[in-house]
Design a protein around this nucleic acid. Structure first.
Length: 656
RNA sequence: GCGCCUGUAGCUCAGCGGGAUAGAGCGGUGGAUUCCUAAUCCACAGGUCGGGGGUUCGAGUCCCUCCAGGCGCACCA
């Protein structure tokens, strides 16, 4: 909403500068730090001071004489050292805001048709931990933001069901614990917790024992071929774990359109097709001698991007004929862009949370052999995107660059450019939290599934829900005999837990390692998810109380347009102005992949609302102009916060 | 060795292509519950923006350099 006013101001300044000084200058327009200074400001007079050999204030004064005030503005003033400040017509702007939708599809010109967002991608061999949650929340918020901006978005979750990590757990069950496949099947939930322990056990059990490590190699081969008891155990482990992961993510309202499984990439010979392309284009070569003898490698030394590496070549096919992760990922990336020349088969996902959908089992699909009556023909058209955003932690930047280099080597320059690595730093444990969990705690501690170091996602969620229940009970405790239904409280506890966790993950800048502190992550006060929820509950309570008093609960745009400008004091007005920047914020966040901008903007809005709530009562205000202006501001706030909370995935309860 | 990221209040962090008096939250101290529920608000205390150079009318922000910390550079993913 504000963006349009900004360009109006820029245009007016540009032509005034041209008229008054004969200069061609592109003025910057910003929002001044205090509302009494104005709503939009330009430091152009400061920028031009040297060129024009005049004092900034002199330039500014002359400028506003020739300036044609754009429509929607009241006046223009010169402030401070020579800023040209524009003051909006508050009444007209607020009335327009009342009728406006907080978030609109942005202009689609130059925007790719379909965007694939790949996130979560947890190895299906153990419980999800809080590091995985950062990935999933960022990916989910990004997908929600893109969709709110009108972009076609497909969310994929990659399941590495044939990798070393699954193989290790299979060895753990079959060889270390002596289980049968039926034993594994019979294990009670939480299966992912059991695997968590098995995985770290087997790591220690291997030690440097060559025979045991041979078991791992054999299992890995079995997983890749898909045949035999070990493969069967691998499929079982992966299937059960994926169900658990989906359930965990479901608690946070995170879901997917498609689960892509690595075993299917192998079964359908995706790599064979990609490998043909790589060989033909000369992007890979066979090494006869040297340390990589017998391997197919992708040479990277010519690319400036990869200067200074210890090894200038990247192995794609190992000397034993198996394919590295990068090789498989290049094939997968080619498929995502529709460049591979073949497609998966699809089936509705079995064994996850059931949802309503066209094929009975719900809208979640997985790659795999089609099941009877509902398969590939009924599936939506997956893949073939114009842009691919992979949410993967920053430690894998090097691998992502190689995948991109692979596309480039095949001549897919545009797609290489549209292969975007959404990198974020890892989640480590704060010294204090590490110590509470029994790990040595003098510095932040990196989590490690292999070592069993970490905080499980479900444990954290349980803790958050339990704390929510306690808080809810404490607030119900003051002799309130109304007897709120337990089920409502249970829902509320879940909503509060979801909000707290999602907001905690979303507010962190992606370039920063999160030192996860249990007390901070479970806080419900200050800059937290529950704080946002409470702000909306307050706003909704106003409506409820107005209804009880028989007063109108809404102000229309026509009524708002009649309010005197005195009805808009600076603080109330500031809320309206901030709300008008939602669209701009979400667009900038989606473009820069800095989603914390959305979280920050949302909490800023809530803070302004809470403050105003105390200063400007609505119910007890006798002056109808003042009351209606406050109510209008509240309406604008509610709609903006609802739109932003939807993107953040923060559920907004009716009461708290 | 090469590359990426980080260093701002006691703690956790914001600070948008340089610009108006460096901001929040937590913690601390002191206030506000005849109230639209205090999961809130208000006030106070707390800062040579890691050090040093440079560019500029102006630097937390840009450039160089040094220091400190984290992460990468596998026939693991």
């Amino acid at each position: 909403m504000l963006q349009r006013r900004k360009s109006l101001v820029a245009d007016a300044l540009r032509s005034a500068l041209s008229r008054a000084f004969g200069v061609d200058h592109d003025p910057t327009v910003e929002v001044p730090p205090q509302r009494r200074l104005g709503d939009l400001a330009s430091p152009c007079a400061l920028h031009l001071a040297r060129e024009l050999r005049q004092a900034p204030r002199t330039i500014a004064e002359r400028l506003i004489e020739t300036l044609e005030l754009p429509s929607g503005f009241d006046r223009v003033t010169v402030e401070g050292p020579g800023y040209v400040n524009f003051h909006l017509d508050r009444t007209a702007f607020a009335a327009a805001m009342l009728d406006a939708v907080p978030l609109l599809p942005s202009a689609t010109e130059g925007q790719p048709a379909k965007v694939i967002v790949e996130h979560t991608n947890i190895n299906p061999n153990k419980a999800a931990h809080i590091g995985h949650l950062r990935n999933a929340v960022l990916g989910d918020v990004l997908a929600r933001a893109l969709r709110s901006l009108g972009r076609t978005t497909e969310v994929q979750n990659y399941i590495d069901d044939t990798g070393v990590q699954v193989a290790d757990v299979v060895v753990g069950f079959l060889d270390l614990r002596g289980c049968s496949v039926a034993d594994i099947e019979a294990l009670p939930e939480p299966f992912d917790y059991t695997c968590w322990d098995v995985y770290s056990e087997v790591g220690r059990w291997y030690g440097s024992d060559a025979e045991r490590l041979e078991l791992r190699r054999r299992t890995l081969h079995a997983l890749e071929s898909g045949r035999g008891r070990r493969a069967e155990a691998g499929r079982l482990v992966a299937r059960r774990i994926v169900s658990r992961h989906l359930a965990t993510m479901g608690r946070l309202d995170i879901d997917y359109d498609l689960l892509t499984r690595e075993s299917e990439i192998l079964r359908l010979d995706f790599f064979v097709a990609a490998f043909e392309q790589l060989k033909q284009s000369g992007a890979v070569r066979f090494e006869e001698t040297g340390k990589n003898a017998g391997c197919w490698v992708m040479p990277l030394s010519e690319s400036q991007e990869f200067q200074g590496l210890e090894d200038p070549d990247k192995v794609i096919v190992r000397s034993d004929g198996t394919v590295t992760y990068v090789g498989k990922d290049i094939a997968y990336q080619l498929w995502k862009f529709g460049l591979l020349g073949r497609d998966f088969e699809y089936a509705p996902f079995q064994g996850g949370p059931r949802r309503d959908g066209p094929c009975g089992e719900g809208p979640l699909w997985e790659t795999g052999p089609a099941s009877a009556g509902c398969g590939t023909e009924q599936a939506p058209a997956f893949g073939a995107a114009a842009r691919v955003i992979n949410v993967i932690d920053a430690r894998q930047a090097y691998l992502q660059r190689i995948v991109r280099a692979g596309l480039e080597a095949l001549g897919h320059t545009r797609q290489a450019g549209e292969s975007i690595h959404f990198a974020y730093e890892m989640v480590a444990l704060s010294a204090r939290t590490a110590e509470q969990l029994g790990f040595s705690g003098d510095a932040v501690l990196e989590m490690s599934g292999r070592k069993g170091i970490g905080v499980k996602a479900d444990d954290l969620l349980d803790q958050l829900e339990s704390k929510s229940r306690t808080e809810i009970a404490a607030r119900r405790g003051d002799g309130d005999t109304e007897g709120t239904a337990d089920r409502d409280d249970e829902l509320l506890a879940r909503q509060i837990a979801t909000a707290a966790l999602r907001f905690f993950m979303a507010r962190a800048t992606t370039t920063r390692v999160i030192a996860f502190d249990i007390d901070e992550a479970t806080a419900f006060e200050g800059e937290t998810g529950p704080y946002l929820q409470y702000s909306i509950v307050r706003a909704r309570n106003i409506r409820r109380r107005l209804a009880e008093e028989g007063l109108p609960q809404e102000v229309g745009g026509r009524r708002a347009a009649q309010l005197p400008s005195e009805a808009w004091p600076d603080d109330l007005w500031d809320l309206v102005l901030l709300a008008s920047r939602c669209q701009d914020t979400v667009e900038r966040a989606a473009a820069t992949l800095e989603l914390s901008l959305i979280a920050r903007h949302t909490v800023d809005l809530a803070q302004k609302f809470h403050a105003i709530y105390h200063r400007h009562p609505i119910l007890h205000e006798k002056d109808t102009d003042l009351r209606d202006a406050r109510l209008a501001a509240t309406q604008i706030f509610v709609r903006s916060l609802e739109a932003l909370a939807e993107i953040l995935g923060v559920p907004l309860p009716e009461r708290m």
